[in-house]
Amino acid sequence: MSMNERLEKIRQEALERIAQSGGLDKLEEVRVAYLGKKGELTEVLKGMRDVAPEDRPKVGQLVNEARAIIEKRLDEARSELARAARELKIASETIDVTLPATKTPAGYPHPNTLALDEVERVFVGMGYEVVEGPEVELDYYNFEALNIPANHPAKDEQDTFYINKEIVLRTQTSPVQVRVMEKQKPPIRIIAPGRVYRSDEVDATHSPCFHQIEGLVIDKGITMADLKGTLAQFAKEMFGAETKVKFRPHHFPFTEPSAEMDVTCFKCGGKGCRFCKGEGWIEILGCGMVHPKVLSMSGIDPDEYSGFAFGIGLERIALLKYEIDDMRLLYENDERFLKQF
């Protein structure tokens, strides 16, 4: 048998064994049997000394060719086996994607906070600073400095919780207006969220403790048109771009002119539904131009500056926006309620 024939035989045998191997271990056996230290091809190389010198390059080339093709086939066979194994594994790993989800343990924000975050987002974006003031407040800031003199019906005990003659639980966030104006020069753009207190028994629509968000803008040349524009913008951001607003004259001792703002019902868009009691409009907030007396009492010259203020009931927004039908739910903290927000 010529060297050629021998090499051809080795090659064929090897390739045949590769094709039939069917496993990585078998492939390794083939590699060892032909390419290993004592493998058949290696043996051929060892027998080179018996080959005529002039034929050696030729034989060497043939051996290398045979080795190359066997190595290539081995590689191919290995990756084919890996591919098949991978596919088998993947195929066996199919899961039922409709099985129940593993719950993420994250907790939920209170609906009041959810609503407040939205209000803050809108006003911070318009350049308002979020500030705070005390809940246990001097009668002066809660009433007198807001143009609510002694003996005003709004001061009546039935509405206000008193600590003593000079100290009350604030009935509104408006005293923050005064505190800000006293220490800050215009331009002023603030909102002041916080708890307020009224002597109302707990029921589905009342709570002795609730939240308001006060807003105040003071600068030169601030007009009622600016008030309307700002709050219309707020309503659109808060309740959707389609929201329309309506301003009705109203009365607050610390603003003049004063208004209440209605927005088109966000459920029916203003056509009238059960949610808005058929009116198409929902009352959202009170507002007005800061009363000149309030400005001057706070040390701001009403001839130089003007401004507007507004007060938003946070619970009212939360109840309306999330369609919560009983205010008590907000303070009971039943998990089944909280986990809906």
């Binding site: 753009r189 803008v217 600068d219 601030i222 007009t223 009622m224 048109a225 600016d226 309307k228 524009g229 700002t230 219309a232 913008q233 309506k246 301003f247 009705r248 004259p249 208004a259």
Partner: peptide, 9 residues
């Protein structure tokens, strides 16, 4: 009130 224009400060 509805006839008052709307502007921003």
């Amino acid at each position: 009130y509805d006839n008052i224009p709307t502007t921003l400060p």
